[in-house]
């Protein structure tokens, strides 16, 4: 048999095998036979020594051509098989993407603190500084400096927990007004969030412990319109465009004039609904111009400076915001309740 026939034979056999190959492993075997040291074509090359010098170049060329052809075929086949095998693997690896997955656990801050943080962000953005003070407070700051002398009827409105004759659990965050004025020089812009205490029995809307945030601005020419502007900005930031304030005359011993401040009901946008009892307004805070008597007691010259102050009840805002109907839930710490809140 001549060289040419031999090559043809090997070529034919391998093509047959290649076409029949079904796995990467088959192909690997074929590759070894084709290109390996013990492969048939390699053996032919080695055997060329027996050929005449004339025949050698031609034979070598034929062998190499056959090898190149087969190699090309092999590679093509290899790609084909790899693609098929990958497709099979993907098929095999398919999972049920709808099967419920275990969520990583994530906690949450208390809703009152969430709301408090939002308020703080809003006011610090307007140049207010956060100031905190004692919860167990001197009667002097809590009452006297707030223009509420001993046995003043206004003390009735705030049923007070006493430690002794001179020390109380603060009934509001207002004593921080005095502390701010006594330690700072105008211009003063502070907010004072914190816990306050009143001797109220626990029910759905009362708690002996609750949270307030006091705001105080002292500067030259501060007026009621500035209070309104500041609170309008706060209302809009907290509840969105279209939420504004309504001022109603009121009385606080430490402000004059004093005002109750209602916000547009955010659930009906002022149309009137169950939450605002049909009025379109929700009462959320009180404020006014700092009483000149308070300024003087706190060492601020009332002929030069004026100021406004306001106090916001955080429980009330939180409850309205999230539709919480029973205040006790806020202090029970049940995770089924707490896990419902997000920012």
């Amino acid at each position: 048999m001549g060289m040419k026939e031999r090559i043809g034979e090997i070529h034919e056999a391998m093509v047959k095998e290649l076409l029949g190959a079904t796995s990467t492993q088959n192909l690997e075997d074929i590759r070894v036979r084709l290109l390996g040291k013990k492969g048939e074509l390699t053996a032919l090359l080695r055997g060329m020594g027996q050929l005449s010098p004339d025949e050698r170049p031609k034979a070598g060329q034929m062998i190499n051509e056959a090898r190149a052809k087969l190699t090309e075929m092999l590679e093509k086949k290899a790609e084909e098989i790899k693609a098929r095998e990958q497709a099979e693997a993907l098929e095999r690896e398919t999972i049920d993407v709808t099967q419920p997955a275990q969520l990583p656990s994530l906690g949450g801050a208390h809703p009152i603190n969430m709301v408090m943080d939002e308020l703080i962000e809003c006011f610090t953005g307007m140049g207010f500084e956060v100031l905190e003070g004692p919860e167990v407070e001197l009667d002097h700051y809590n009452f006297e400096l707030m223009n509420i002398p001993k046995n003043h009827p206004a003390r009735d409105a705030q049923d007070t927990f006493y430690v002794d004759d001179n020390i109380v659990l603060r009934t509001h965050t207002s004593p921080m007004q005095a502390r701010a004025m006594l330690t700072r020089k105008p211009p003063i812009r502070v907010i004072c969030p914190g816990r306050v205490y009143r001797a109220d029995e626990v029910d759905a809307t009362h708690s002996p412990v609750f949270h307030q945030m006091e705001g105080l601005v002292i500067d030259k020419d501060v007026n009621m319109a500035d209070l309104r502007g500041t609170l309008n900005a706060f209302a809009e930031k907290l509840y969105g465009k279209g939420i504004t304030t309504r001022f109603r005359p009121s009385f606080f011993p430490f402000t004059e004039p004093s005002t109750e401040v209602d916000l547009t009901c955010s659930s009906c946008h002022g149309k009137g609904c169950r939450i605002c009892k049909g009025t379109g307004w929700i009462e959320v805070l009180g404020g006014g111009m700092v009483n000149p008597k308070v300024l003087e007691m706190c060492g601020i010259d009332s002929s030069v400076y004026s100021g406004f102050a306001f106090g916001i009840g955080l429980e009330r805002i939180t409850m309205l915001r999230y539709g919480i109907s029973d205040m006790r839930l806020l202090y029970e710490g049940d995770v089924r309740f707490l896990s419902q809140f997000r920012k």
């Binding site: 953005g125 309504r246 005359p249």
Partner: peptide
Amino acid sequence: EEALRVYGYDKIPSTLLRGETTPGGTS
């Protein structure tokens, strides 16, 4: 307060704080 409550609290305009600015911030 007497004058303002009869004049109308609803007529109080809304103005922004003026004067020297303060940096503000949390403690």
